[in-house]
C-alpha cells in the first residue's frame, strides 16, 4: 500500500510507537548499556566497565550449570513432549466418541496458572505428603517411592521437566491438530488406492506435511525452555545446592537479590543472543524439510 499522506500515517503510528519505545525499545537499549556497567540498581550513576561482566559470566561456575540445565530442558522436553503430542494429535484427530472431551482434558493443564501447578507438583513429589511416593508404594516399587525427586541434584531437573511436559503437551497437541486439519484428505485417499498402509501413510504423508507445525512448536518450546523461570523458581528455587539453576533464575538472583543488576543484565544479553542463534538455526534446518502439498 502506498503512503498517501505522511502526516496521517505518523498520527496513527505515534501512540503505539511512543508506548513501544518507552516500554520496549527504551529498556532494551538501556539494558544493553547497563550490561557494560557496574550498575547497583538504585541510582542512575553507573561506571562503564567494558566487557568485565561478560568475562565474569563465562568464568562463573553457575553459568556452566545454567547452560547444562538449559540443554537438558530443551532436549528432554522437546523430544518427549513432541513425540507424545504428535501421537495424541493423530489419535484425537480421528472421529471417535468423546474426542472433544478428551482434547479438552489434555489441553486443560496449559490454561492453569504455572505457580499453582508448581506448588501442587512440589506436594505431589514430596516423599512425606506426596501422591507420587504413595503411588509407587502401592505398585510395590519401594526404591522409587523413597526418592526425594525435587531434593536430589541428580533427579530434580528431570522431575521439573516432567511437569513442564505435562503442562504443555496439550498446547502443542492443539497446534499439531491444526496442522493435521490442513492436510488434504485427497492425499490419503490416493495413497490408499496405491496400497499404502497406516504406517506408511504416517511417515510418508502425515509427518512431512506436519513439518511447518513442528517448526512452530519447536521454536515456541525452545524459546520457552531457554528462558524458563517459573517452574524452577516455584519448585526448587534453583536448588538443591544450585543444581537446577537456569539463566532465568540466575538473572533474577543477580538483578534483584544481590544488587548486581549490571551483571544480571549482561547475562540476560547473552541469553537473548543465544536464543536468537538457536531459533534462527532451528528455522533454517526445519525450513529445509518443509514440503509443499
Amino acid at each position: 500500500m502506498r503512503i498517501l499522506n505522511l502526516k496521517t500515517f505518523l498520527l496513527f503510528l505515534a501512540p503505539a510507537l511512543l508506548l513501544y519505545s518507552l516500554f520496549y525499545a527504551g529498556p532494551i537499549i538501556s539494558g544493553l548499556y547497563y550490561g557494560f556497567t557496574d550498575w547497583k540498581g538504585i541510582s542512575f550513576s553507573a561506571n562503564w566497565i567494558g566487557l568485565d561482566n561478560f568475562k565474569n559470566v563465562f568464568s562463573d561456575p553457575l553459568f556452566a550449570t545454567a547452560l547444562r540445565n538449559m540443554f537438558i530442558l530443551a532436549v528432554v522436553v522437546i523430544a518427549v513432549q513432541h513425540a507424545i503430542s504428535i501421537f495424541l494429535a493423530v489419535l484425537l484427530d480421528q472421529k471417535l466418541r468423546g474426542v472433544v472431551w478428551m482434547r479438552a482434558v489434555i489441553f486443560y493443564p496449559a490454561i492453569l496458572n504455572t505457580v499453582v501447578i508448581g506448588y501442587i507438583w512440589s506436594y505431589m513429589y514430596s516423599p512425606f505428603v506426596g501422591f507420587l511416593p504413595k503411588f509407587f508404594e502401592s505398585l510395590g516399587l519401594d526404591t522409587l517411592a523413597n526418592i526425594d525427586w525435587l531434593g536430589r541434584p541428580d533427579t530434580a531437573i528431570y522431575a521439573i521437566s516432567f511437569v513442564i511436559i505435562w503442562q504443555y503437551t496439550g498446547y502443542s497437541m492443539m497446534i499439531y491438530m491444526a496442522g493435521l486439519q490442513g492436510i488434504s484428505s485427497d492425499i490419503y485417499e490416493s495413497a490408499s488406492i496405491d496400497g499404502a498402509n497406516a504406517r506408511q501413510k504416517f511417515f510418508k504423508i502425515t509427518l512431512p506435511l506436519l513439518v511447518p507445525a513442528i517448526t512452530v512448536n519447536t521454536v515456541l518450546s525452545v524459546i520457552g525452555n531457554m528462558k524458563q523461570f517459573e517452574h524452577i523458581w516455584v519448585m526448587t528455587q534453583g536448588g538443591p545446592a544450585n543444581s537446577t539453576q537456569v539463566f532465568g533464575t540466575l538473572i533474577y538472583q543477580f538483578a534483584f537479590k544481590t544488587s548486581q543488576p549490571g551483571y544480571g543484565t549482561a547475562m540476560a544479553i547473552l541469553l537473548s543472543i543465544l536464543i536468537m542463534l538457536v531459533t534462527v538455526s532451528i528455522i533454517r534446518v526445519l525450513g529445509r524439510w518443509e514440503v509443499k502439498q
Binding site: 513429589y125 514430596s126 516423599p127 512425606f128 505428603v129 526418592i147 526425594d148 531434593g151 536430589r152
Partner: peptide, 11 residues
C-alpha cells in the same frame, strides 16, 4: 529425617 531436602518450610 531422611529425604527431607526437597521439602519447603511449610511442608
Amino acid at each position: 529425617l531422611e529425604n527431607s531436602v526437597g521439602l519447603g518450610n511449610a511442608q
